[in-house]
Design a protein around this nucleic acid. Structure first.
Lengths: 332, 332
DNA sequence: CTGTTAGCGCTTTCAC
DNA sequence: GTGAAAGCGCTAACAG
């Protein structure tokens, strides 16, 4: 059995109320008593019972993180980022990754229903009406990562996909001198994917490059879909000079196909990606890509969340964009 | 405000005690009343307040997972495995990954001190005395993954590193006909690493192959240490025919160096690894390696933990080994 | 400044 | 079978 404020109270000849106040560093405590309480607490190695505190305060120092099916690297880095900030603020991180048994929506309902979390971070690149409704109906402070930003009664943090794709495309045009730039898109409903596509289109337009629909291919952010897309592009009469894949996994799929076609990167065709996952560092040639500071996103989201958990009455919702950077490899 | 058993009790004209019993499916409840309670609960969309339950029961339905600094893929897969089993049993998963602010030991103390977890899963390839002491002193059910198995008052789950390394070495000898087999070890205090080394040695001995100390190199499980090890081996007068790296990251480090030396894998030298991380699938040639079912490990550990959390009085501690399998690529 | 008291929502004796 | 009541450890009025 671990020790409680009651025992401290006995040792100190005080009431539990005073002990509680001293421990929580409230104002109305005589410095001497506070010191006494703290020293006894230290001696006894007292640790507060968070469960009890949460019960009476009707909140929780646990942050629920809801993650969809995502690749390992993104998953672990984002949690690391969240955990680091949460820890320094005295919070815990509980994860619910969706899997065969559970969807994103169920995770959220579960968290709220069990009143087990005091705040939520939801990573939802494909936020839908169901999720939107659930979130709208809750009183648990929530931050959404990568959702559409037009949810304006909630804080959001997202990657600046548009800018990243724009920069990459402009780099291909202005620095590398490419004019025939193909793009393999991500899933249709994926916000990241569509913003990247828009950035690509905008950069082409701003640089007066004609848009060729046959060079724009639908993909699924998987290596396989990258392979398929690449195969389509390489079988065209009018081939592109470079392929801008919507993410690195698809770019690596392109690598495979290009090699299978007996062509060389970057001499015969260039390939660039988006995300800067670890795999792309090991690809040969090293992939040119857009770096996304994943851990940073997690940290930022957590900072915003903690602020909101402490002061509920702020109606000024933030919509932060995390900027990206180009990683120049040898693949174009 | 969410609804409580009190409200159900009022609606049903029962006491909260009976409602509680009905909800928890206890014996002494008339079927009719139980049905009534359950239907009202369903109607009102009642969700139990887990915090309150945990407080009175002095336990928690949260499982704490303590992870050291490990690579992204391992991290996410093991959590997925744990989470899947935990979820189906009605448990939550809280993670504490060590980072700049916190060590493994601190994570554990934190979990226990705050009485926030009802069970722990600790991934500790390098378990030390400090951690051992802490665990010994706790009453929280705990399962250790990959620790030394000679902690006999605690359940453990580990990879069968010995068997995996033995099989790989034997494969290299018997199927591939190699005789000059080098090994790059992992960190000295790492249990996985030392068991792999032992498996390698045993297979050599059993097949009457002389052990050449100059072909046994210390590594750190990182790509860089693999590069260094490989460089050492390639600069020997008597070069090995194949390098068995203690893990895939080091094997990929070898890939880089071999290529830099202008040599070809597998013709000039073979390279094999251990872990079967996703990267090795994308390496060219595809790495031959030992597959470790990471998710499986997480699942197994969780199953054992849940059992122990339910019945504390079992003194029969389990020490499970998860077996591995060879993944045949083209790198030897 | 400190003590008394009433709960937070739930489980669990102990009666009836 | 069911209800009354105590209490898990803590916080937060309300008194003094």
């Amino acid at each position: 059995m671990s020790i409680t404020i009651k025992e401290i109270a006995e040792k100190a000849n005080l009431s539990i109320a005073t002990v509680s106040r001293a421990l929580n560093n409230l104002d109305n405590v005589k410095p001497a008593t506070r010191d006494l309480v703290l020293s006894i607490a230290g001696e006894l190695n007292y640790k507060p019972n968070v469960i009890a505190r949460n019960l009476v305060k009707n909140t929780s120092n646990i942050i629920g993180v809801v993650l969809p099916q995502i690749d390992g690297e993104f998953f672990s880095e984002i949690i690391h980022g969240i955990d680091e900030i949460a820890y320094t603020g005295g919070y815990h991180v509980i994860v619910a990754s969706s899997h065969s048994q559970r969807t994103v929506a169920q995770s959220i309902i579960n968290f709220m229903g069990e009143t087990i979390v005091g705040g939520m971070i939801i990573l939802a690149p494909m936020i839908n009406d169901q999720i939107r409704e659930i979130i709208k109906g809750t009183s648990v402070p929530t931050v959404i990562i990568n959702g559409r930003t037009h949810l304006d009664n909630i804080d959001t943090v997202s990657i600046d996909n548009y800018q990243g794709a724009y920069s990459m495309t402009e780099y291909l045009i202005k620095i590398k001198g490419y004019k025939k730039i193909a793009h393999i898109k991500g899933p249709i409903l994926n916000t990241d994917a569509s913003m990247r596509y828009k950035g690509y289109i905008a950069a082409l337009k701003d640089n007066h490059i004609q848009i060729d629909e046959s060079w724009i291919i639908n993909g699924e952010f998987t290596a396989e879909s990258g392979e398929n897309g690449c195969r389509r592009l390489l079988s065209l009469n009018e081939k592109p000079e470079v392929i801008f894949a919507g993410n690195d996994m698809m770019a690596l799929g392109c690598f495979r196909v290009v090699k299978a076609f007996g062509m060389k990167i970057p001499n015969d065709i260039g390939v660039v990606g988006f995300d800067n996952i670890m795999l792309s560092e090991f690809a040969s040639p090293r992939l040119t890509t857009v770096h996304v500071p994943i851990s940073e996103i997690g940290k930022t989201a957590t900072e915003i969340l903690l602020k909101r958990m402490k002061t509920t009455s702020d109606n000024n919702f933030k919509h932060l964009k995390i900027s990206t950077g180009l990683v120049i490899g040898d693949s174009c």
